[in-house]
Design a binder for these strands. Sequence first.
DNA 1: GTATTTAAGTCAACATGGCTGACATAAATA
DNA 2: TATTTATGTCAGCCATGTTGACTTAAATAC
Lengths: 161, 161
Amino acid sequence: MADINTGPNPLFLREDQLHQAMELLFYAYRDFTAECDAMLATYGFGRAHHRVIYFVGRYPALSVSELLGILRITKQSLSRVLGELVEQGFVSSRPGPTDRRRRVLELTEKGRVLESRLSTIQRACIARAYREAGGEAVAGFRKVLLGILNGDDRRRFERGA
Amino acid sequence: MADINTGPNPLFLREDQLHQAMELLFYAYRDFTAECDAMLATYGFGRAHHRVIYFVGRYPALSVSELLGILRITKQSLSRVLGELVEQGFVSSRPGPTDRRRRVLELTEKGRVLESRLSTIQRACIARAYREAGGEAVAGFRKVLLGILNGDDRRRFERGA
DNA sequence: GTATTTAAGTCAACATGGCTGACATAAATA
DNA sequence: TATTTATGTCAGCCATGTTGACTTAAATAC
């Protein structure tokens, strides 16, 4: 059970295990985002808005360039989505206190409400899976996912999150 | 370590753990697909083509409706992508042997070459993470991911994959 | 104090990959 | 024969990514 290379044809099993992992990631990501996508649609928002809402909520006083570094999209792409969120009062964008070129992004009260509704959905999804799988499985889950991250992300993740 | 609810403020820790899981999924999925996206671009293809190539390769003689059920997109969306792949000779589409309304999808030799190049990238990524994490972590990883799938997918996955 | 760099924003054009709705065709089935 | 099913197709729309060129304001270097 613990050895992923047992069986009559270790090489084949290994390949099959890897395929299973690839598919699990695909299915899990798809199902993980489905419910939130539906709720976002009622606001006229998409998954891109969710990501902004999420990271701004999670890392208050984030700057635009930091957000770009996390999302890995162009500033033109971000600006469309972020602009809508600021425009509609979900995110506030103020000049930084020391460096006034930077913009300090925060969720407004309205933004926090939406963030909370979305997070509730996803937390429930993860919490259920965690509860069913048990603490040891959770540790393994995190260990493997962390290993999939590239070096930069892993370091940022280990530092920041 | 095994108990995800330890610490001075169990509720907060729990919430933080859940946030970490959400972010890990985001980062891992992004990094997992990045290399393949770059290679696909050299063919003029995108991630949607990859999914088709992958599932047709993995489940030979798949029908269009089965593929639709896996991908959860509309047939119009699929048709664009699948049409290109058939047109350019990566996927063959023939009438089914018994039910001639169905189309039997298979990778061509050309398609298998591309599939192999893409799979090599992703298998390496997973294999490295698996190797670093160890067999027990792998079991936990799979258990948690499986728990994130909705019921239908979980059943299909447990049956088919 | 001027020159340069940096953070952010903007305009325009384009590509990918989702979506809906309406309709067509051929084959299986009632 | 009538209906249902599997697939394909046309047309248009939307969300979200891209590149390239340019602007503005503030910080920093010389």
